[in-house]
Computed example of a mutant assay.
Amino acid sequence: MAETIAAEAGTEARRGPLIYRQRLTTRLTHWLWALALFFLLLSGLQIFMARPDLYIGQQSGFAFDNTVFSIGAVREAGELRGQTTLFGETFDTTGWLGVVTENGQTQVKSFPGWMTAPGYRDLATGRVVHFFFAWILVVTLSVWLAASLLNGHIRQLIPTLRDVKHLPRDAADHLRLRFHRSADYNVLQKLSYAVILLIVLPLMILTGLTMSPGVNAVAPWMLDLFGGRQTARTLHFAGMLLLVLFVLVHLLMVLVAGPFNELRSIVTGWYRTDPRKDTKGDAAR
Rank of each mutant, 00 (worst) to 15 (best):
A2V: 15
A7T: 13
E8W: 06
A13C: 04
R15A: 14
G16R: 05
G16A: 04
L18D: 13
Q22T: 14
T26N: 11
T29M: 07
L32Y: 09
W33C: 07
A34Q: 03
L37W: 03
L37I: 10
F38T: 07
F38I: 06
F39M: 04
F39N: 04
L41H: 07
S43T: 00
G44E: 05
G44A: 07
G44S: 10
L45Q: 06
M49H: 11
R51V: 13
L54H: 04
A63G: 15
V68M: 09
F69A: 15
F69S: 08
S70C: 09
L80W: 15
R81G: 07
T84M: 11
T84I: 09
T85W: 02
L86F: 15
E89G: 00
T94Q: 06
W96G: 08
G98C: 08
T106K: 06
S110I: 01
S110H: 00
W114P: 00
P118W: 00
P118R: 00
R121F: 09
V128Y: 00
F132W: 13
A134L: 06
L137G: 03
V138K: 02
V138P: 00
T140W: 02
L141R: 01
V143G: 04
W144H: 09
L149H: 07
N151Q: 09
G152R: 03
I154K: 02
R155Y: 11
Q156K: 13
Q156C: 07
I158Y: 10
L161I: 11
H166E: 15
P168A: 08
A172C: 02
D173V: 00
H174Y: 15
H174R: 05
F179W: 02
R181Y: 12
D184V: 06
Y193H: 02
A194Y: 12
L197Q: 07
L197N: 05
I199D: 05
I199Q: 08
P202Y: 04
L203E: 05
G208A: 05
L209K: 00
G214H: 01
V215R: 06
V215S: 08
W221Q: 12
M222C: 06
G228K: 05
R229Y: 05
R233V: 07
T234W: 01
A238C: 07
L241N: 11
L241S: 13
L242W: 06
L242M: 10
L245Q: 12
H250C: 04
E262G: 01
E262K: 05
I266T: 09
T268S: 14
T268V: 04
T273V: 12
R276V: 15
K277R: 15
D278Q: 02
K280I: 08
R285Y: 04
